[in-house]
């Protein structure tokens, strides 16, 4: 009975849906506020992301003629479900997730499903801009995913385990992997920026070129679910990086685990916001170039270094 209740609590409240929903809104607000302040603007009030979500739920939900109605209704839900499932295996603060050997691979796979859904949404929603955006998002996926996966396999090889909880636990009595493999950390951050389609890699939804890219024709509830899934992906991606590279909730000193975890997550978010502000958007061919000529070889170098020097 208690098991049932605690499982339900984990799924729906902490660190389940309610917690992730709150994290998505908070991270979005902090990101927008930091970017605004760096640009000299005021930034939104704290309730803005919540207000945007509620507003979208209340809006009319139309699709153009030629859009695949069933797919367009299902895809945002698929994306949201994949992201929420991925969050189950990532420890947050003190909470220990149900872990097993290999859950890192499962999480990475689950986090790729929203990218695929995004691309399909572009193809199936019946607009020129969304088709172009969908093509670009797939090209982008192949450019950042390989370095991202290789960068995340470095800590796994170093820790001798493919379980996120184990990798995190190892760092409580060893230096953080970000310090030991700085190149890997840099590549993981770059890959995360590509995954979250933030500037300078916001190519599929380049506002001035193709409207909103794959999501151009979505509105109302569908768009609300899409945005929610993308923002929860931000939170989940940051939590993943904090666990794998920054040691989760450990800091070497006795301190409240949730606070430590929260501060580390905020620091990663601040880095992402800073990168957003600093650069112009790349073109898709420039990103493909960058991904395959620079990032992938660097990731290979990092993995080789770990294999030859790190372990044993």
């Amino acid at each position: 009975m208690i098991d049932w209740l605690s499982a339900l609590f984990s799924l729906l409240i902490f660190p389940g849906f309610a917690f992730l929903f709150l994290c998505a809104l908070t991270f979005q607000w902090i990101d927008r506020l930091v970017v605004a302040r760096l640009q000299g603007r005021v930034g939104p009030p704290w309730y803005q992301p919540l207000a945007d979500f509620i507003k979208l739920l209340a809006k009319e939900d139309v699709l153009p003629i030629g859009a695949h109605e069933l797919a367009c209704a299902a895809l945002p839900m698929v994306s949201l479900a994949a992201v929420l499932t991925a969050a189950l295996y990532i420890p947050v603060g003190t909470h220990s997730a149900p872990s097993f050997e290999g859950d890192l691979i499962v999480v990475l796979f689950l986090l790729s499903i929203p990218s695929l859904a995004y691309f399909l949404a572009g193809w199936l929603s019946g607009s020129v801009f969304s088709v172009i955006g969908g093509n670009r998002s797939l090209l982008q996926y192949f450019s950042y995913e390989v370095p991202f996966l290789m960068a995340l396999s470095g800590p796994a090889i170093l820790s001798g385990s493919w379980s996120i909880a184990q990798i995190t636990a190892q760092q409580s009595h060893a230096p953080w992997i970000a310090l030991v493999q700085p190149l890997g950390f840099f590549l993981a951050l770059t890959g995360l920026i590509g995954k979250l389609k933030r500037s300078p890699f916001d190519i599929p939804k380049a506002k001035s070129e193709i409207g909103a890219g794959p999501l151009t024709e979505f509105s109302g509830r569908k768009l609300a679910l899409w945005q929610l899934s993308l923002h929860i992906k931000t939170a989940v991606g940051i939590f993943l990086l904090v666990n794998v590279f920054l040691g989760g909730a450990s800091i070497g000193l006795p301190a409240p685990a949730v606070l430590v975890f929260g501060i580390k997550a905020l620091l990663v978010l601040l880095v992402l916001s800073l990168v957003d502000v600093l650069y112009a958007r790349l073109r898709i061919d420039q990103l493909v170039n960058l991904g395959w000529r620079v990032l992938a070889p660097l990731a290979l170098v990092q993995v080789l270094v770990v294999i030859l020097i790190g372990v044993g």
Binding site: G40, V277, L278
Partner: peptide, 16 residues
């Protein structure tokens, strides 16, 4: 260049 300008903007008053 940009980091200096970012720092200056952060410390200055909001333009809005």
């Amino acid at each position: 260049h940009l980091l200096t300008e970012l720092r200056r903007t952060l410390l200055a008053e909001r333009v809005t």
